[in-house]
Design a protein around this nucleic acid. Structure first.
Lengths: 218, 218
DNA sequence: ATAAATTTTTAGGCAAGACTAAAAATTTAT
DNA sequence: ATAAATTTTTAGTCTTGCCTAAAAATTTAT
């Protein structure tokens, strides 16, 4: 069994390690968890003894298979709770994170299995991120950043990269959400902004925004 | 804001203080929380500084009004989560306590208000205990121990005193639950046991059991 | 009323998890 | 290749919440 603090480190290492082969640096973990590098070193030693990570001094850390499974389970809980908050308790997608950060640490296998069933075994959370199954497997779909689409390509919004409240509320204002059809009408070479059609309306989207919206092409 | 540990102390003091006018003893708190008296003294000093309790050396503690309100809020969360677990996630009434002990510490006013609404503003938890409202007020109903009923009195089960798994599972086996009609057919002077009619069946109930079931007379 | 038993508090320590400051190792720049 | 900059680790400290052992206060018994 892991403490909340240990779980937070495991999750951070997991997220930092997605599509990276080298070890995760002490500094990167410290930055993500808003803590100090020396604290990270301490915790890494502990997680290493518990065989959650592989660690060699000055070389960063990698999750073991056990560590990955542990991480997937924490993320599973986090995302299921997010679904619950949005679908059942009227939270908006920019409000869920803080509460899910707490709920993900509740220890009860039955609770999470029942919650999963209660929610109808959802595959994705309110931000479009996949929910790991009980064995830690992620359903992968292929998705592209809106910014990579060419003129006249169409797709449907399947996720976001930035999940900050500011960005999510901006999307709400623009009526962009998961499942929303988006068509690229034009790209402006000057500032790499996009002219897109959403809900029948034509709106301009900055390059920064286009780099934070995931699209499934069609 | 209080730590989980502080919240557990506040709750313990509240429960020990129901229908008691004197201060709660250090030892009583230690026993309830399965900790040592010296640890209790430490925590009591802290809670006293935070104006949650009134404390004079060697005289036990009492909750301040602020402390009572805090306690009621924790209990509100605990009981609402219990309702959720039983009504929505298929937990039985003997399984909920441990998980609710964790969930009660989640910090989010919106979460608990929405949960309350989602559940339809329940007045009582699965054991028949009243759920405090947002201001900390308890709906009090008058209830009597089954053991105090006379021959031929009738009532409905509205709560339990002992909430241990053993007792609750015993009640399940006897098909006794909240809302169950119970009629005292006879009392046996020899061992103070009861002959009662439940669900049309006549069964004998020990005095110990009768002292742990609350009845609303009718 | 005093002795014995009990309860409560104090004093000192320990583990987890964080921090600061300084040392050591590594990487980058010249 | 060496100096400078950066990253990482070590060493020592702090807080929270717990512990044991001993001292102090209170209660109970004789």
């Amino acid at each position: 069994m892991f403490s909340q603090s240990e779980e937070n480190y495991i999750k951070a290492i997991y997220h930092l390690g997605v599509e990276v082969t080298k070890g995760i640096s002490t500094n990167a973990i410290a930055k993500r968890l808003e803590t100090k590098a020396s604290s990270v070193t301490d915790m890494i030693k502990k997680l290493s003894e518990k065989e959650v990570v592989v660690y060699k001094k000055y070389q960063g850390v990698t999750l073991t298979d056990f560590g990955k499974k542990t991480a997937a389970n924490i993320i599973r809980k986090h995302r299921l709770w997010e679904v619950f908050l949005v679908e059942e308790l009227n939270f908006s997608w920019d409000e869920v994170h803080e509460v899910a950060e707490q709920l993900e640490h509740i220890k009860s296998p039955k609770l999470i299995d029942e919650l999963d069933a209660f929610l109808g075994y959802p595959k994705r959370d309110p931000h479009g991120d996949p929910i790991p199954d009980k064995d830690g497997n992620l359903p992968q779909i292929q998705k592209s950043l809106l910014a990579t689409l060419q003129k006249n390509e169409k797709g449907v919004c399947v996720g976001v990269n930035d999940t900050s409240s500011e960005f999510l509320r901006f999307l709400d204002k623009q009526e962009i959400g998961l499942g929303q059809d988006i068509e690229v009408l034009d790209k402006e070479p000057f500032d790499d902004s996009f002219l897109v059609k959403i809900n029948g309306k034509e709106i301009t989207i900055s390059n920064k925004v286009a780099n934070n919206i995931y699209i499934q092409k069609k």
